[in-house]
Write a protein that binds this DNA or RNA. Structure first.
Length: 222
DNA sequence: AACACGATCTACT
DNA sequence: GTAGATCGTGTTG
């Protein structure tokens, strides 16, 4: 897993083809469950090893946003902030909210159609001491069990906006892991679009954010 | 130029 | 369970 970190010119095993992201964002959201997200935050100190400031985790919770869906930033058309949503898939759409938190999304849908997948929770796999430090020594299960928390823990910043998920700052990879049971529910923290079951999560995973929406969750077929 | 608010989280009752 | 933090963005004047 760490063989390619910082190794210029190395192949990146398991990164996903553009065709993966170039589908309906609901399909991409479901299929991102179980994939690995790796983040390299900017190296600040010259002597730091390439591995430093790298964290990785398995994606366990996602949400889809699409087109004119009233809960999506794309709903009122293209704005300076949301322009990326209308562009080519496979890029990171990062935004800042509540004066405090970054949110990390994968742009989905073909070029010209708006869509994205919000990464809501991951299960830590690598760089755990860094995550723990960034999360102020909180218990492990509270490092990455929410979209703002995981960006804190993994060092996702606005500077990642527009980066691809094929590196060198962000990676989504497939290591062959397949979750056995997935659930779907309404999306968390929105008032519009409550009828769309566009939140996906791995059933029983301790890093899934606990939400009121869980009471309405139902099994998701693959 | 001013304003209202948000795909959240934490602290505190 | 709920209030407060805190600021970029989009909308309105």
């Amino acid at each position: 897993m760490t063989s390619f970190l910082g190794m210029k010119g190395d192949k990146v095993p398991g990164t996903l083809p553009a065709s993966f992201y170039e589908r309906e964002s609901t399909a991409v959201a479901k299929d991102l469950l179980g994939k690995i997200l790796l983040v390299r935050s900017q190296v600040r100190r010259p002597l730091e090893s390439p591995r430093a400031l790298v964290t990785a985790g398995r994606i366990v919770e996602t949400e889809a946003y699409r087109g004119s869906d009233p809960a999506s930033h794309s709903c009122r058309g293209r704005t300076p902030r949301s322009a990326l949503l209308f562009g080519p898939p496979g890029l990171a759409y990062v935004y800042f909210i509540y004066g405090n938190y970054e949110m990390l999304n994968c742009v989905a849908e073909p070029d010209g159609l708006a869509g994205a997948v919000l990464i809501r929770a991951v299960s830590p796999l690598f760089g755990e001491s860094l995550m723990e430090r960034r999360r102020g020594g909180l218990p492990r299960t509270r490092w990455t069990d929410g979209p703002g928390k995981l960006c804190r823990a993994m060092g996702v910043k606005m500077a990642h906006k527009g980066q691809t998920f094929a590196g060198p700052a962000l990676y989504v990879t497939d290591d062959g892991f397949r979750p056995d049971k997935a659930m779907t529910s309404p999306r968390v923290g929105i008032s519009a679009g409550r009828s769309a079951y566009w939140r996906y999560f791995i059933a029983g995973d301790p890093f899934v954010s606990r939400a009121p929406e869980d009471s309405q969750a139902r099994p998701q077929k693959w």
